[in-house]
Design a binder for these strands. Sequence first.
DNA 1: TTGAAAGCGATACCAC
DNA 2: GTGGTATCGCTTTCAA
Lengths: 336, 336
Amino acid sequence: MPTIKDVAVKAQVSIATVSAVLNGTRPVSEPTRLRVEEAIRQLGYQPNRMARGLKQRKSQMIAHVLPSVMNPFFPAMLKGIEDIAYEADYSVLICNTEMDEKRIRRYSQLLLEMQTDGVVITAPGSDAIHELARSLREHGVPIVALHGPRSMDYVDRVLVNDEECGYLASSTLAKHGHQEIGFLGVDGSTTSRLRYQGFIRGLQSHGIELYRDYVLLGQGFSQEEGYRLGQMLFSNPSSWPNGIVAANDVMAIGLWEAALNAGLEVPEDVSLIGIDNTLASIMRPQMASVEIPTYEMGRLAGEQLLARITKNQEGTPVTIRLDPRLITGHTVQSRG
Amino acid sequence: MPTIKDVAVKAQVSIATVSAVLNGTRPVSEPTRLRVEEAIRQLGYQPNRMARGLKQRKSQMIAHVLPSVMNPFFPAMLKGIEDIAYEADYSVLICNTEMDEKRIRRYSQLLLEMQTDGVVITAPGSDAIHELARSLREHGVPIVALHGPRSMDYVDRVLVNDEECGYLASSTLAKHGHQEIGFLGVDGSTTSRLRYQGFIRGLQSHGIELYRDYVLLGQGFSQEEGYRLGQMLFSNPSSWPNGIVAANDVMAIGLWEAALNAGLEVPEDVSLIGIDNTLASIMRPQMASVEIPTYEMGRLAGEQLLARITKNQEGTPVTIRLDPRLITGHTVQSRG
DNA sequence: TTGAAAGCGATACCAC
DNA sequence: GTGGTATCGCTTTCAA
């Protein structure tokens, strides 16, 4: 690979001048500029970002820390971040945590070693995640929490209104005349808890009674857990809810399966609505869900991060909160 | 951030010795080693990878060039690559091409500027992609084509046996007694063409006639195209295939919808089978499909790439070809 | 077993 | 407008 020196020799100028042409940091006369540009072309010269980064103490790289790209909820966020980064000439490093403490800690160190200019965190707030955030901040690396730890109120955040998600879901069932409405969530998850709060508000605002037996919390947002909780819900053949909100689409699909296996028809016997709209729209029949603008959130997180990097490093943390949107489907049927 | 020099001062040794402790590149006496390690701990020192990379002319970064992480086919591959990279202390840069020539060209340049140590390419072989590969190779950057351009026989490749995918799909329908079998594919796609060839072989080996009218090629592997082609297939109310192979799951789902809209029951009136198993398993009823071991392929690609980077830079290109696996579902029903 | 010093390929300050 | 050169933080000879 040719270096700036090769260019300088070929164009018969100093490397300082080549640098000036490259970065426009100072005026260069037309003829020299042309000579330099010609030399660059002929040599196929490309500046070395490691050298530049070393000197400027920035890498033009940002990172996205997320649980796993294999979870369909996240790729759109990653894509949103990448699109913004691309436009601003930044590269994106990807860090799948798998919710593994050890892995998070190693990435925490790696990001520092790489001189990452900023980090978007999309991961539940475990100890290791908070430690990662603390360490990065301590070293002056800007952070944006994207649908991440809600408790990170000391960094910029891009969130969806999770309470509203739950509200939209239960309200929809209520409006369709359901009176006995269940909720499937995840124990210890802030997201699940907020959605449950909205769920309650939806019931209340329609004057519907809460059946505590129809509220079940599992261990994770998985299809298996949705199925397992579904089985419990339908285990009593004489009593089950006629409408159910699941804390996300994946659980809703497991729930759906449990309903079918219990001999129930959807939506004739029981209405279902998910949250996220990751998979709802591709199901047949299409499942009702509450859409979260994940791509847009990714873009906003990317923009906010770059703003912190290039402009106001300081300044009080910002919170951007987007609203979800109801997606109607064929798994909700009017009652009575 | 403390530098190697700070450590040296604190431990009262030269930076050369610190470096030796860090990298084990030469023997260091026990007492000095302990002093250095203690200094590193106390300062919270982390080596600067840009500086190291500049000197060593490698970045400890690899890249994954793929059409889009939002396409459910790719995340598992990316994850496989990342897992291998993580174990070997490499970072992964992500490059979504969106099949956009301009974007590919910019990434081509970026990867060079970043001093990327190696690249996994998972993208159809457009002009721009071949140009990217050529440019990287010219600069000595190892490449692995992961389910990528089949024509890149000058680089290592990790592929699935696409012909076999088609064969498994049509054979399955044949074994269930279907006689009039259709195929939905994509015009100009090598993947689609190979799967079609296997499809034909499946028919032949079961002595089944090919109905050319039931073979339709669209413009892309999308649900919309699946739907559109499906509509064409079902437009003649007196004649349609009773079994159809779609070149991938996403198209199969569009096709499914078209069938339902045409008033046909699946699988009573028409059997369907997809390829990829990206979405088939989560559909209800579960869709039949042919599974591609994408995660495992990603791992193999990562391993092969790292082998090239750290060991045999030279040596004739390797091709690793994995076999697909049939996933039975409820969209195929026996005939007659 | 250790240290001094020459780079790696850029940027940026200081002269001219 | 342009050139010389110190510098970024590290690795790697070469000497001692």
